[in-house]
Design a binder for these strands. Sequence first.
DNA 1: GTCAACCAGTTCTATATAGGACTTGGATTT
DNA 2: AAATCCAAGTCCTATATAGAACTGGTTGAC
Lengths: 242, 242
Amino acid sequence: MVETASMIDTRLPAYLRLRDELAARIAAGEWRADEALPSDNRLAREGSLSVGTVRKAVQMLVDEGLLERRQGSGTYLRKPAFNATLFRFFQMRDAGSGQSIPTSRLLSRTRVKAPEAVAKVLGTDDVIRIERLRDFADRPFLSEEIYIPASLFAGFETIPDNEVGPLLYPVYLDRFDVFVASADDEVSFGTADETTAARLGIKPGEAIAVIERTAYSIKGTPLEWRIARGPANRFRYRSRIG
Amino acid sequence: MVETASMIDTRLPAYLRLRDELAARIAAGEWRADEALPSDNRLAREGSLSVGTVRKAVQMLVDEGLLERRQGSGTYLRKPAFNATLFRFFQMRDAGSGQSIPTSRLLSRTRVKAPEAVAKVLGTDDVIRIERLRDFADRPFLSEEIYIPASLFAGFETIPDNEVGPLLYPVYLDRFDVFVASADDEVSFGTADETTAARLGIKPGEAIAVIERTAYSIKGTPLEWRIARGPANRFRYRSRIG
DNA sequence: GTCAACCAGTTCTATATAGGACTTGGATTT
DNA sequence: AAATCCAAGTCCTATATAGAACTGGTTGAC
């Protein structure tokens, strides 16, 4: 067999290629939340694959939390993934149950040269830096500093403030076709510097919790690095292991 | 169809029953770490199942981190799961790389009536309470209070101290056939009370990190509840989301 | 002795097929 | 009008089979 051009693919197994294709089509917004995807049978026919292969690909996306299967009914896109999985830290200690998403205020968005440590993680120093403050129960509780590659998020800094919702990951998806599939969090403890203290309404030197997060695409490409700081006494971080 | 006795099973699908059977045999110590399990073909023959069904069951245990498949070679038991996955908090901030397991000192083991909150989680108030102190770099860094159901761990409090290693989960497995498959962690910050401060060698009122963990079996039964406290400034917690 | 070729055994990919379990919506009956 | 039945469509379980990809050991040629 002659090796044709476009061997970028390296001939991955069919079920992986289908998985990636579906992930791309989902990211492209082909289906709305809670809308049914084509059935296993259709996908098999359209892709000239067997049902077993299709099932394997779809199942991976289910395991990743992107899709949801309902027996007898269909396979559905599962948007609520956001608040549930990737927004599960800082469940406020005081107002226990609400489960409401805190509001957020954008403080700045600028295209800058990334600090070295950030550039190393993201693989580029051409980044957009976002400063954000999140409120809960009418008090600021989280001061965030976010870095995203300018190449992936071209023009992010020019989006009108009011079109950037309280959650960033849906914005990434809707406007830039970038899907955050996983993240590494690192929680530690420190004390507030001048500016952090001012933003959080506490005194410099007071105890704060620090969360550093690196977010990845489904393929493992780093998409975002952020550092978030909040008053230690209001902090609570949940995590499931295994 | 007549409902016979022993309908505990409810006739689960074959691949789930095989998964559970394998998990049980693993827990029973039938294979040592890094030892190969029977091949897919053998398991299929011995269980009168098809290879596809066997593969499905085995794959679940791989996903859970219990097993490891090596193409062309075999399926192997994967013991290192312990230190890696379930012991990944408190990666000491100072001694960065060592990755060594801290030593631990047992302070007490007694059969007690559980506090209400603990009883609610474990589903019983007949528990064994363990107090433990872990050292790292010759300093105490973690004071733990652990509760396990007496029914599952009968006689745990009578095991000689020197037979309880620095890690509890292997002891659960080796001596009680109890396998910890997952856990929920909850991290927060607080201040040290008298006894905690004394144990950790810090001053009362100093900042501490608090990790509350509930550990579960593969079936979701709660196996253990623990609360661990350590000096906040030495603390660092990692977690992977997604 | 060294190295290549081979071989048996293993996991991995992929297909085809059959029937079970469940959902949904329309037709039929009451 | 409401309850029931039915049928098509969906995902779920399970089997059988074929060949590819890979590993580890044995054999054979040199």
